[in-house]
Design a protein around this nucleic acid. Sequence first.
DNA 1: CACCATGTTCCTTG
DNA 2: CCAAGGAACATGGT
Length: 281
Amino acid sequence: MPELPEVEVLVRHLRPALLGQTIRGVSVHRERVLRPTKPRELSDRLIGAKFLRLERRAKFLVFTLRRRGESFQLLGHLGMTGRMFLVEAGTPLPKHAAVVLDLGAQWFVFQDTRYFGRFNLDASVLTKLGPEPLGSRFKVGEFREALRRSRQPIKVKLLDQSVIAGIGNIYASEALHLAGISPRLPACQLTAPQALRLYRGIRAVLGEAIRRGSTVPLDFAGKGKKDKLFYYGRAKNAKGSYEERLRVYDREGTPCLQCGEKIQRITQAARSTFFCETCQH
DNA sequence: CACCATGTTCCTTG
DNA sequence: CCAAGGAACATGGT
């Protein structure tokens, strides 16, 4: 489920449930998700540790833990299909449970079908990340300066986590449509007004997704398929009518909500991009 | 069987 | 050193 807004909403749900709890045991079902450690190193480190803080940085969950007076960080990343949730201790584990933390009355489950997600005790990857798009240190001037140095198509550049951290393939298309900018435009060719529109579009799209996600109940037990949340192009609202959540992503061939022309799908850097040829230049 | 999928990292090439 | 492109990772849905 994971781009910045989904991770943000997950963190907000997990934080109150997790803080203050102590890890009693660690079971690793899939070593692959551990970086750069072995299962033994993870359990040695985590057993007896208490959750002090939980923050989001880009698409990472940053857990701050404390054990014997010493604080350290554990990074969680959901990859493409990861989930994290709490269940009552003893609940049968779902398919593809990768790591389970025993908290006593509850278990904290990290499940990931494709195992692209990570539990990482080395937080150094965070230093390579660019600014948080919703944070006060994200400045339009620096954003434009970074774009000016690249000839890559703007859509591809938006996925570069060292330029802006947290945008993924879905919200890259969404932000460009809102800003009225072609995904094919080389990053260095954005004009100042375009860079400003994109800067604002990014913040608007991510902020909106967080607001919507915050009102949707998360599927903590990981049952069913209802936790796709924001990724449904349409979802029924309380009145039973369809509510549009995504403007262009995964809507190839359907009418643009702004002008009615058909949404196009193209491939850039081996990934799908969706856009409206009429509205985006 | 073919193709597609919300992400990151590593390797190569220029 | 850099920017950029592509494969790899692994499983499931259509």
